[in-house]
Design a protein around this nucleic acid. Structure first.
Length: 428
DNA sequence: CAATATGATTCGGG
DNA sequence: CCCGAATCATATTG
């Protein structure tokens, strides 16, 4: 919630001051005496070393200071799934084997889309790669996605500017030194080998800086990735309305709370969440409901009653088939059509029994039956006879085939028992 | 703060 | 792939 501003530096930032490199070659030209040439060369070399070392540190410091929170985060938060990530880039951190490491970093940056072409394709590639690396569930979390992408772009931007800067500085410096050497060559013979050696030294130094930069960038990307792709880190509860909608659906399809793909899509749309989230929600809901029905009775009652009323009024106004007369509204949802519902239930039993081929009316009724059944089973404690006939199981749902499965081994016929159940049903 | 609620992920199975 | 189950990590609540 606070990383935005930090990373949001509109380009330019940070490139401004660049102590180590920008203040490039000290005025070496001063040593135009003649004798102290050799000394100068030594000095220059010294300078190179100093400068580059300094800038190296700075390069690192800068990067770290640019993503301080991120890095802090990685250190603070528990072991998160960074372990996987760390594994993938380990070896790059510890020792410093010359080549393979650099290649690794390069590959990674490339795969990450940081050092690749432009944005667009790169980002999606990153997403894919990231998803694959982290979970494997390449789903659709486009929301967080854009955020993630934006930040990745920033990282890339910084990376590129810095890299460019380094390169430029390197070139400038090399030229500078070359010029100097050339100048000196008039006073003393300078073997090409010597020049080459100098250039090599410079390049080596600069490439080591580059590598630091790459490494730091990798780190930042990794952290960013873990931050954004591990959704658990940012879990947000769905808003009240969404939960309502989901619950409504769940309880009105209690006998078969497995929304089809289309249903999921619709729910997702209505709730402003992704289909995956809908699936997750139902998965969680099913198992948690089953695990402790008592805990959900209140809620079940509520939604069942509510949707029952809705459905009832709806069907009353619409077609009527062999429907029960749909009595009074609100109030005693539990007690009302108890007797009728018995019939209804029986009559629909067949529909309900086999698969849910239910045409149009069937679906409608099915839904009602579900909710009614609940209402009934709630009042069940009092309506001996009906509940006694185990037509529809003890727990209220699992009447037929599918989503049934005896839950709590305890309590069978009486809805009572266990934690805090009952009580509330009469209030209804 | 602990306890609980909740969304997401991971691990087998079909 | 979808499920259920177990589990994780965060949110919310008391």
């Amino acid at each position: 919630m606070e990383e935005q501003p930090r990373l949001m530096h509109p380009h330019g930032v940070g490139l401004a001051g660049h102590p180590g490199l920008t203040h490039r070659p000290p005025d070496v030209t001063a040593g135009s005496d003649g004798d102290s040439r050799k000394q100068d060369i030594g000095d220059i070399l010294q300078q190179i070393m100093t400068i580059t070392d300094q800038s190296l540190d700075e390069a690192q410091a800068r990067l770290h200071s640019r993503f301080p929170h991120l890095i802090l985060l990685s250190l603070n938060t528990r072991k998160i799934n960074i372990k996987t990530i760390m594994l993938s880039i380990r070896g790059a951190q510890d020792e410093e084997p010359p080549d393979p490491q650099l290649m690794r970093l390069d590959n990674m940056l490339l795969a990450e889309g940081v050092s690749g072409p432009e944005k667009g394709g790169g980002a999606s590639a990153v997403a894919a790669a990231a998803a694959a690396a982290v979970g494997g569930t390449g789903n659709d979390n486009s929301v967080e996605h854009s955020d993630y992408r934006a930040k990745l772009t920033q990282i890339r931007q910084i990376y590129h500017t810095e890299l460019e800067k380094y390169e430029q500085a390197c070139n400038e410096f090399t030229t500078h030194v070359m010029n100097l050497l050339r100048e000196q060559s008039r006073t003393r013979p300078i073997s090409p080998k010597e020049i080459e050696r100098m250039v090599n030294i410079i390049h080596r130094k600069f490439s080591s800086i580059q590598m630091q930069l790459k490494q730091s960038t990798c780190e930042a990307v990794m952290i960013l990735r873990s931050r954004f792709l591990d959704a658990r880190r940012k879990r947000r509860n769905f808003n009240k309305q969404a939960t309502e909608i989901l619950n409504e659906y769940f309880y009105s399809h209690l006998s078969n709370p497995y929304p089809s793909e289309e249903a999921k899509e619709e729910l997702a749309k209505k709730c402003s969440i992704t289909v995956s989230q809908v699936s997750n929600w139902f998965g969680n809901k099913r198992i948690r409901y089953k695990k402790n029905i008592g805990k959900f009775q209140e809620e079940a009652n509520m939604y069942a009653a509510r949707t029952a009323v809705n459905a009832a009024s709806a069907s009353a106004q619409g077609s009527q088939a062999n429907s029960p007369s749909t009595p009074n509204s609100a109030g005693s949802a539990a007690s009302f059509n108890m007797s009728h519902s018995g019939d209804l239930f029986m009559s629909v039993q067949s529909l309900n029994g086999d698969s849910y081929p239910a045409p149009q009316v069937g679906a409608n009724i099915q839904s009602q039956v579900d909710t009614l059944r609940h209402v009934i089973s709630q009042a069940g404690g009092y309506t001996d006879a009906l509940t006694a006939t185990q037509l529809y199981s003890p727990q209220g749902i699992n009447a037929n085939g599918v989503w049934q499965d005896a839950p709590t081994p305890s309590s069978v016929t009486s809805p009572t028992e266990g934690p805090g159940s009952v009580q509330s049903d009469t209030s209804n």
